[in-house]
Design a protein around this nucleic acid. Structure first.
Lengths: 218, 218
DNA sequence: AATAGTTTCATACGAGTGTTCGAAAATATG
DNA sequence: CATATTTTCGAACACTCGTATGAAACTATT
């Protein structure tokens, strides 16, 4: 292990610190939120120096931007889009409604679903949701870069399930309400645990939730 | 209008300031969150002095506590509990399922529903949700003081609708998923507007959403 | 009217923030 | 090997934050 090779050729020191900072940002921003994370905590977590963020990203805001872009890319590769990608929007009409419903639940599970089980759901989705909820410039950016396409696929599924048009207003509303269920449970974990009288989300609890998503109408 | 009488007798200067500060807190905490609101902004919004918060509430944290308690009381009087209070849990079995579904939608609408139309939904619910989502000591307090009872009623409705037990795990999960829909739409308004291709929530859009909540199963 | 208590206000303090700067160290280039 | 470039690191800056202090203004009591 004399030289640290990663995915692409050799990884210089600069790339190493950049990566470490982004990972620290995903973790800390996701846990405490952007504004509750100091650059001093970030550089300590990344094992580097106070000035590193400004040098590599131009500032704390620059690190956020870089982190968002990293997550946007990661979301495409490992996010719910993976489960969704198998679906051909053209041939979706050949699916039975039971199939569509099952796929829908599977997608939601793999999307935002919970902490310990799904490695993706934990840190990454948490931060993404925080940013999306917060509003502001990044909401739009992230919506276009990530959410938009997957939401379109979701609408196709919902429309098929409800015999409606994917672009209709009712389909849009119903689709966002499906997202809402999964997203809120991820965001409001403390409240959810209290309401369900659970200690944590371990075991088969993710499945219990996933199986009870409201996804059909009338 | 020589003396400022409000609801109870005469309102001293101190009470006036306290009230103004709590109202400012509801507004600013709800919009930006507790930590993004400085005491200087609070006192400016309330039209008083920098030292007022420390004098009347012992500190910023004290103002938060007082605000929470005020909202807990207000929630009981004007919250979704109002719509729910009309329901007698004992006689709920006499309701038709259509009735139950209609009541459920009505309750959700009046609970967290949107901005400009429902005066309650806007500022108050927004801050309550922020606190509940955040986690921490207040989540538990607020859950016990406010959420718990109304959630129990919600579970009765859901159980009736799905021929299940109000205390069963599936009923709890399904109930929290109903809350999730309403709550998330309130929290993530920027994202929701983008997803629905809406400019704002004006007009009959609250009804469109309310009518499309997922509340029935199978 | 004089005094005691309450409430407001201007100011200052210490702690924490993001950022800047220049020198040291490490790497790349000739 | 010598020089130029990149990257790290420590120290300091300007700023905002919540809070504390003591004097002024106001109200209530005698």
């Amino acid at each position: 292990m004399s030289n640290e090779a990663d995915e692409q050729q050799i990884e210089g020191r600069a790339d190493h610190t950049r990566k470490a900072l982004i990972e620290a940002a995903i973790k800390l921003f996701g846990d405490r939120g952007y504004d509750h994370t100091s650059v001093r905590d970030l550089v300590k977590e990344a094992g580097t120096n106070l000035a590193a963020i400004n040098y590599h990203f131009g500032g704390k805001e620059g690190l956020r931007q870089a982190t968002i872009e990293f997550l946007a890319e990661d979301f495409k590769l490992h996010g719910p889009g993976q489960a969704m990608a198998a679906i051909d929007p053209a041939n979706i009409r050949s699916l039975t409604k039971d199939d569509a419903r099952r796929i829908l639940r599977q997608v939601m599970k793999s999307a935002f679903m919970q902490a310990d089980k799904r490695q993706f759901g934990n840190k990454h989705a948490r931060y993404v949701l925080r940013e999306l909820v917060q509003g502001g410039a990044l909401t739009e950016h992230f919506f276009e870069k990530v959410f938009s396409k997957q939401f379109a696929l979701l609408r196709v599924l919902v429309a098929h399930l409800t015999d409606d048009d994917p672009d209709s207003e009712t389909t849009r509303v119903r689709s966002i309400l499906i997202v809402a269920q999964s997203a809120f449970l991820n965001l409001a974990q403390p409240l959810v645990l209290l309401a369900l009288d659970w200690e944590d989300f371990s075991g088969d609890k993710a499945d219990i939730i996933g199986d009870n998503f409201w996804v059909n109408h009338e």
